[in-house]
């Protein structure tokens, strides 16, 4: 095995370890915490009733003022 191929393999292994750690941590945090403790927004979830959100619908004037 050449030096270059060892370095290439090492780069792939380290990348895979980091990817696994990131995915594991994202899943772990999502499981251990309620979504409302994670989401940074004034309101928790999307309002799923389009009618209720009607005032925000686009008008012909961009800013509505």
């Amino acid at each position: 095995m050449t030096t270059a191929s060892i370095l290439n393999l090492l780069a792939w292994v380290v990348s895979a370890v980091i990817a696994a750690w990131l995915i594991h941590d994202v899943v772990r945090v999502s499981r251990n915490h309620d979504e409302k403790d994670l989401i940074n927004a004034a309101e928790m979830f999307d309002d799923l009733d389009p009618q209720a959100a009607a005032p925000a619908a686009p008008s012909t004037k961009e800013d509505g003022r």
């Binding site: 409302k36 927004a41 309101e43 928790m44 999307d46 799923l48 209720a52």
Partner: peptide
């Protein structure tokens, strides 16, 4: 997760 469709489960802070 925050759904994009389905039952109207509006949750506010």
């Amino acid at each position: 997760t925050a759904g994009e469709s389905g039952a109207p489960t509006v949750a506010t802070q």
